[in-house]
Computed example of a mutant assay.
Amino acid sequence: MYQTISTTLEDNILVIAINRPDKMNALNKTVMAELALAVDEVYKKKEIKSAIITGAGEKAFVAGADIAEFLTLSPEQGATLAKKGHTIFQRIEECPKPVIAAVNGFALGGGCELAMACHFRIASTNARFGQPEVNLGLIPGYGGTQRLTQLVGKGRAMELMLTGDMISAADAFAMGLVNHVVEREALLEKAKEILKKVHAKAPLAVAKVIKCVHAALDKDVDGFAMEIDEFGACFATRDLQEGAEAFTQKRQPRFTGE
């Protein structure tokens, strides 16, 4: 079905792998279009409860964009390219099902931006992160200036983007850019371990948490008011009834997402 990505569904987790290891999994138009289709699958298919985005091979998660595609672009075409990237990455960020980036190797430029669009990140010990666009006379174009600042703070984000420096997985963990650092062979298992915990929770509540957390960073949204509304909306769900009954009966809840 796909030419530049691969997908595997197991235990209700869709693993989406950028599959251009000979090109360090660089993003091009085809990758972005196919990634958008895979994300649509996550939204639409009930059997998919969560997703992991990773890179094929041992060297790279995504080592940036395919720079050869940039050489003939006009300013208008460049802006159109960035807008498409923003749309796809925002759809990942706003997915009501959890999406984890499992970062193996280089996550540079658009690759770092893709990882940051996921709900959180797990890195292998050999992972490297960076926004080196200034080395090409560019700036991050797929949300990097905004998400990196949100995740690590203005000062650190400014330094990383102005110098174009790469940082190690350990440094990324210290900055709060990644949640966990594990050996490469344990990377996917760690991501799956976390997602299986989430799968045991109420799906509607999970979606509402994701929505409300994003609202905390949206200047145009009153996140506190949204939390009140979404908290109230939980009382119309069967899952709340099941969760409360299971708690009082001292048993594990059986959530249905209703």
Rank of each mutant, 00 (worst) to 15 (best):
M32Q: 10
S168R: 02
L160T: 01
T54E: 05
M32W: 03
I16M: 05
A123H: 00
R121H: 12
L177K: 06
D239L: 05
P253M: 06
V182S: 02
A51H: 05
H180T: 11
A65K: 00
F235S: 10
K154P: 08
A117C: 09
L81N: 12
G55R: 04
D229K: 15
Q252D: 11
L217H: 15
E242Q: 15
E94Q: 15
L35R: 02
M161E: 01
V178E: 07
D40S: 13
D66A: 15
G176H: 04
N25L: 04
D229V: 07
Q150D: 07
I100W: 06
Q241N: 02
D165M: 14
G141Y: 04
L188M: 13
T7Y: 02
N104M: 05
V178A: 04
Q77K: 13
G130V: 02
G64N: 03
C118P: 07
A186M: 11
Q241P: 00
E227Q: 11
P203D: 10
D171P: 02
K97D: 03
F129L: 02
V221S: 12
G78P: 06
H86L: 09
V15Y: 03
E159Y: 03
L177E: 14
A246V: 12
I16F: 05
M175R: 02
D218G: 00
F70M: 11
E230M: 07
G176M: 03
I13M: 01
G164Y: 07
G153N: 09
L37T: 14
F173T: 06
E133Y: 04
L73V: 03
N104H: 10
V39E: 06
V103Y: 09
A225W: 08
